[in-house]
Structure formats: structure tokens, C-alpha cells
Design a protein around this nucleic acid. Structure first.
Lengths: 178, 178
DNA sequence: TAATGACATGTCATTAATGACCTATTTCTC
DNA sequence: GAGAAATAGGTCATTAATGACATGTCATTA
């Protein structure tokens, strides 16, 4: 149901079409809660049938622009506050693999770690670039996004540090074997 | 397919029954890649049918103990190294909600943030406790787990810091309005 | 004017994951 | 010796998510 939270959360800002939501997604939430456009369109339809959003405009190119309803607003607040399944807050394949990295042969492992480091550095750089687009304001919604982004950044940096630490393990081992 | 990686990764250590894997899961990977026991049993059966594991022993209480095969070992290495869908490495509901926290009314928001902080502190404490059980060794597999755990810790701490930062935003606002 | 590329919305088959159950055995405790 | 709790291994229905397509619009540019 998180995809619903994301879609309705974005619609709280302003009415949007599925396409617009998809684009907004790609520029912000997609790295934290991946979703394909088809999932967003499907979710919008379901939300419409449950009166959480309503079709408010047919724009150019038959684009269907949806507006969030009062029920939709309540749904979002409910979703934010509830912590029904506390376990599945996080699903992190990178950390899962990190636990098993010792299963690789030294050469493969080093290659893997270098790639991982690069990947997380890219994520980090991307997020920093996104953050620059945030307006400088003490508005709560802006600050919330800013601090959320900073938390995301810390996550990416944790992975970069992990890769570094593991690469160092390798170097120490090499040095010792000389 | 990550659940398969996790199951086979654990079986690389030693032969185990579905129940034992489930328990090992709960004590380590479950917070990073949640899985119910039924999913693990299902995966074990699928792996058996694909010759990635083989039933090596029927232990007490008809417990089926599986051993990883050579194909299984190759599968794990392949899985570790490949980065087929780079986007869906991470699925983090906490950070998703963090982006929308401004949608809550101040009182609800504060309550939510305090609960979140507590939750992530608990996760952090739990992981630190788990880390104490790691043997002190310079063995790569031990170091890998140690550094992975440290990365996890950094993630949890990032969330605690986020909650703190957002709580401070609130306090500043209150102070300013006096 | 033809082609390209961004815009826009979907369907459909399949896989992954959850949630709710079910059925036994064995061990521990009162 | 009765009953609870942990061990052990599932089934089944449903929902969530992916991946591969399908279809058409509109603006730009070659």
C-alpha cells in the first residue's frame, strides 16, 4: 500500500496526471520506493474507484488529471501515522549482498566492491543534485523533504563507507601476504 | 530473486532445515530483507527442483535438512555479482513517509516523529546487540558481516538523526511563535 | 512530409510477497 | 499427567510488483 501513499502524497501538492506523477516519481521517490508507470496508472484507477481521488480534468492529449479528495487526504494521514507491519519498512538488497560478499573469490570481490562503491557514489551525487533544486525556505514541507533527502544521503554514504572498509580489508590482506 | 540469494547464501555456511534458516533469518537478515517462513519453505522446494540444493538428511521431527549443490554455489556468486535491475536495490518505506511528514498536523507530526525515533533507536540497539555476538576474527566472512552490520547501523542512525532534525524544526517553530 | 522523440495511458502474463490458516511432534513446566 | 510452548513444515487465497507489449498524440526537425 506504500505506492498508494506515494501517489496520494504527491497529489496532496496539486492535481496531476499519471504521467506527471510518474515524472515526479523519477525525480524524487523512485530511488526509495521504485514504481513503474503502469503501477501508478493502476493505482490511480483503484484510488478513483475508492473515491480517494477524482478525475478533475481531461487535459491536452487526453491526459487525465486527478485531484485528491477529502477521503484521499484522510487516507494519507492514516497511512503516515500507522505502523502496522513494522518489519517491512526496509528492503535493502545492497545490504543483503553485503553480508555475503565473503563468498566471492578475492578478485571478483574487489571488482564487485569497486562497482558497488561507484554505484552508491552515483546515487549520492544524484541526490545532492536533486537537493540543490529544493527551494530555500523554512516551510515545513520543504524542510521535511530536505531532511528526508539528507537521511537518504546518509544511507548512500553508509554504503560507500562499507565498500571502502571492505576494500581496505582486501588491501591489508594483500600487504600481509607479501 | 533476493530471497533465493539469502537462502542459498545461508546454506553456503552449512546444511540447514527450513526452520533453521528461518531462525537464522530472524536473527540477522530479516530486518534488511523481510521473509516469512512459508516463503523460505517455498523457495527451498523450488531450489530443490532446480538442483540448487539437495535434501541431505531427514533429522528429528521429520526436519528436512538441505545442502547446497555446486550449481547452487554458482547461482549465489552470479547473483552477488550481477546488477541487473539497479533501481530496485532499495525499498524504504520510512524514507518515503519522511518525505510526506509535513502533511501531518503539528501535534500528530510530533507524535509520529517521537515514535519513529524510538523505533529506529530500537533497531539500532538490536543490531548493536547482534554485533556483539560476532566472533572477533580477521576472517573475511566475519569482517564482511561486521562491516555490513555497521552499514546497517549507519542507516538506522540516519533515521534517528532525521527524526531529531524534524523534531527540532518543530521546536524552533514553537519558540518563534511565542 | 516523414521520421523521431517526448507525451500519455494502458493491458496482460508472471513472479514475489503477504496473511491467514493447518497439522503434527517434542520438550518443558506446573 | 495435563497443558503450554517451541519445533517443523507446510497450504491457499490474495495483493503487490515486474516486464513485456500495445496504442495513440503532438511537437520538432531534417
Amino acid at each position: 500500500m506504500s505506492i498508494r501513499g506515494a501517489v496520494l502524497g504527491l497529489l496532496m501538492e496539486q492535481p496531476m496526471t499519471g504521467y506527471e506523477i510518474t515524472k515526479r516519481f523519477e525525480h524524487s521517490l523512485a530511488r526509495i520506493w521504485p514504481a513503474r508507470s503502469n503501477q501508478i496508472y493502476t493505482e490511480l484507477k483503484k484510488c478513483e474507484s475508492e473515491d480517494l481521488v477524482k478525475l478533475s480534468e481531461i487535459a491536452a492529449r487526453n491526459a487525465r488529471r486527478y485531484t485528491i479528495t477529502d477521503q484521499g487526504r484522510s487516507w494519507v494521514v492514516q497511512w503516515l501515522v500507522e505502523r502496522s507491519p513494522p518489519e517491512q519498512q526496509l528492503r535493502f538488497e545492497g545490504l543483503l549482498k553485503a553480508n555475503f560478499v565473503a563468498l566471492l573469490a578475492p578478485i571478483e570481490r574487489q571488482k564487485f566492491l569497486i562497482e558497488e562503491k561507484l554505484y552508491w557514489q552515483e546515487q549520492s551525487a544524484w541526490l545532492m543534485a536533486q537537493m540543490k533544486h529544493l527551494p530555500t525556505s523554512s516551510d515545513t514541507s520543504v524542510l521535511a523533504r530536505k531532511h528526508a533527502a539528507e537521511a537518504g544521503l546518509a544511507v548512500y554514504e553508509a554504503m560507500v563507507n562499507w565498500a571502502d572498509a571492505m576494500l581496505k580489508v582486501e588491501q591489508v590482506r594483500e600487504h600481509a601476504s607479501k
